[in-house]
Amino acid sequence: MSTAELDGITVAYDDLGTGLPVVLVHGHPFNRSMWRPQAERFSREGYRVITADLRGYGETTKPEQSERTGLDVFAADIARLADHLGIERFVLGGLSMGGQIVMEFQRAYPGRVAGLLLADTSPQEETEEGKRVRNETADRILAEGIGWYADEVLTKMVSPENVRTRPDVAAHVLRMMRTTPAEGAAAALRGRAERPDYRESLKRVTVPSLIVVGTEDEFTPVSDAELMHDLIPGSTLAVIEGAAHMPNLEREAEFDAVFARFLKEIG
């Protein structure tokens, strides 16, 4: 692990391998270990893979309890880390909230993106009901801790069948969720409640783009992936059978195969 002092916070990150830079952004409420299988494999295969704990997650500085962390703040953190590492242009990928951060980064810094991976995410702005639920969930996490949330959503993050047959994956996902700082999770939930609509900006994407989704995903179903596929010119859609919201862990081999093909096309 390495750390960097950026914008008043200490960012924890891993920087593995050499070659084409690939930055992978974790989802909520996880940490950079979510991408460990991909970081280890692709760093051995000629890529420089960078994974960081987002602001308020993992080993990166957490915000004060009253803060709201918008997707624009997370995107700016990624830009600052890339500057710190001397990387101007890179492949950028994210899952779930990480995918929305990627969309925000693409909107704000399009010239820095060499390719996009959008996994199990959605481009639409939050609904009024969604805003209410996210803010209420943030309140409850601050009051009671995040354990109840982790237990409640495990079988949506990882399909019930994979919880049964892949206990190692289920344990990893549960551990990430249970160890996420409550303040960081709550701040991000409040920020996501105010996220913009990325559908128009996706129409302007000109770089190679891969969209991945699990067939069992209840949070961001296949229809959301199909929407992004329709919006992004020339994009590739990969639907991973038997995975829910975490195909890179639930169906690692299948996910890695489509990602490997995508990276080879970029160079």
Rank of each mutant, 00 (worst) to 15 (best):
T220R: 01
V239K: 13
T220L: 06
G93S: 08
L189N: 02
E216L: 13
Y47S: 13
D120R: 04
R112P: 04
F262P: 02
H245N: 01
L210A: 09
P196C: 10
G98Q: 08
V258G: 06
D217E: 04
D230Q: 15
E128G: 05
G130M: 10
T69E: 01
A138H: 01
I87L: 11
L54G: 00
A39H: 02
E216I: 02
E5A: 11
G58N: 03
P167G: 06
G46N: 08
D72A: 14
N162L: 05
L85I: 08
T180P: 04
L54S: 02
E200S: 12
L24Q: 01
R80L: 15
I232N: 04
R89C: 06
D224N: 11
G86E: 00
M157K: 03
I232F: 04
G86L: 03
F255A: 01
K203T: 15
P221E: 00
F259S: 05
E218I: 13
A244Y: 02
R192G: 09
V163D: 02
T127L: 06
P37I: 03
G8T: 07
D15W: 05
V258P: 06
E88F: 12
F259D: 01
S33E: 11
I232K: 03
F255H: 00
F74N: 01
F42E: 03
S33L: 12
I240W: 10
T236D: 10
I211H: 02
V91I: 15
A4Q: 05
A170H: 02
H229Q: 14
A76F: 09
F255Y: 14
E144D: 14
P233E: 07
M177W: 06
K203L: 08
V25F: 00
D139Y: 00
T206D: 13
N248I: 08
P21K: 09
F255S: 03
P21N: 05
S96C: 12
T137A: 11
V239T: 13
S201A: 15
F259T: 10
E144Q: 13
T155G: 00
A39L: 09
L95V: 15
R251A: 11
V25S: 01
L16R: 11
E67S: 10
E254R: 10
L81C: 07
M34T: 12
E129M: 10
T61F: 04
T3M: 03
R190H: 08
T121C: 12
P181I: 11
A143R: 12
A244E: 00
V113P: 02
E218N: 00
F259K: 04
G56S: 02
R195K: 12
L117P: 01
L54V: 05
K203R: 15
P29C: 11
D120N: 15
P29T: 09
E161R: 14
S235Y: 10
N135L: 15
G17Y: 00
A143I: 09
E194R: 13
V169C: 02
Q38A: 13
G115N: 08
T127G: 02
R195P: 09
A243S: 12
F42N: 06
M176T: 10
R192T: 14
E194A: 15
G111A: 10
G191D: 06
L24T: 06
A114D: 11
R44Y: 04
T220V: 08
E67T: 12
G86I: 06
Y149D: 00
G234N: 11
I141N: 00
V133D: 07
N135W: 13
R89G: 06
E183H: 14
L202M: 13
R44N: 14
E59T: 03
Y109H: 14
P181H: 12
S235L: 08
Q100I: 15
